[in-house]
């Protein structure tokens, strides 16, 4: 199929905060909300923007490794906690590492395209701060080919992959220039995050971000060619840019919705009035609507 047989719209969306060390509410020794909290908050936040949850035909929940991070499998069964009206609806869980959120959306779009559903609720959720980073690294390594790569891999498996790329950049552009570029990147990412109240680094109050980004790399404690500040760039930058919706992070929801406007008066009104963002799935900016 070279073209979608009909347009598919994202009609509602909600994202929770990304809770982590860059936020004031985060305290490593204090209890934190778990998976269910975020699923409920995100799901309810999105459903509050559509007229009636009974109109949701199917659900998709996207997550990576909850069975290890949260000791919870069968996430599809958790989704009706969002609303009792979701009970007995077909719900599936999808997983595709960091692409889990995107996979959730495309799966939902396929359900709509198949004609089996007009309206699909899609939730993406991650709660990974249940374990220390050094143990989380093992779990995240499952996104690579575990059998052939984990044993030979670095303690910080994925950061080390990026460290290798940074090493290649250094070989090409010189160590100093590469580090300067990375430090600017960090600075920009945090400035973006400060513009998004739900971003993990929203409360980051470091004065000289660039100087922080210039911190040396410590191969003994972390990785040889990146420092710990290099780690949140991708998420924070995107968060800032898209005003906070990104798949594969904690507690996000993207509501994918079919074209059956009868179910959603408000969406139709918004389209008519021209201020609803109703990009078909497959469009680059469809996410984050």
């Amino acid at each position: 199929m070279s073209r979608m047989t009909k347009p598919v719209y994202v009609t509602a969306g909600y994202n929770t905060i990304s809770l982590g060390s860059g936020r004031k509410e985060f305290h490593p020794k204090k209890p934190r909300p778990g998976l269910e909290h975020y699923i409920k908050e995100a799901g309810q936040g999105a459903l509050a923007q559509v007229n009636d949850p009974s109109n949701v035909d199917e659900g998709v929940i996207a997550n990576f490794m909850a069975a290890r991070f949260n000791k919870q499998g069968n996430l599809a069964a958790v989704m009706p906690m969002i609303d009792p009206k979701l009970e007995y609806k077909p719900i599936v869980r999808v997983e595709g590492a960091c692409g889990s959120g995107g996979l959730g959306l495309t799966t939902s779009a396929k359900f709509v395209l198949s004609g089996m559903a007009d309206s699909v609720l899609t939730v993406g959720v991650e709660v990974q701060n249940t374990v220390k980073a050094i143990y989380g690294a093992d779990i995240l390594a499952g996104a690579g080919h575990y059998a052939s790569q984990r044993k030979a891999g670095h303690a910080y498996f994925f950061p080390a992959k990026f460290s290798d790329r940074s090493c290649a950049a250094q070989a090409k552009f010189g160590a100093e220039r590469t580090r300067e570029g990375m430090a600017r990147w960090y600075e920009r990412a945090i400035l973006n995050a400060r513009a998004c109240p739900k971003a993990q680094e929203y409360h980051n109050s470091i004065d000289d971000l660039y100087a922080t980004g210039m911190s040396p790399c410590d191969a003994n404690a972390f990785c040889g060619h990146i420092n710990v500040y290099d780690c949140s760039k991708v998420s924070e930058e995107r968060r800032g840019r898209t005003r906070g919706i990104r798949p594969g992070r904690r507690g996000h929801l993207e509501g994918a919705r079919g074209p059956d406007e009868a179910h959603d008066d408000r969406a139709r009104r918004e389209e008519r009035d021209g201020h609803g963002r109703r990009d078909p799935i497959g469009h680059r900016d469809a996410r984050g609507a």
């Binding site: 143990y135 690294a137 093992d138 390594a141 984990r150 303690a155 003994n220 972390f222």
Partner: peptide, 22 residues
């Protein structure tokens, strides 16, 4: 040990049974 896992993985490189940081 959690702080020196980078070195410990090298020390235990020959132990096939020790795969994860844990």
């Amino acid at each position: 040990a959690e702080k020196s896992t980078v070195q410990l993985r090298d020390i235990y490189a020959d132990r096939d049974d020790l795969v994860e940081n844990y």
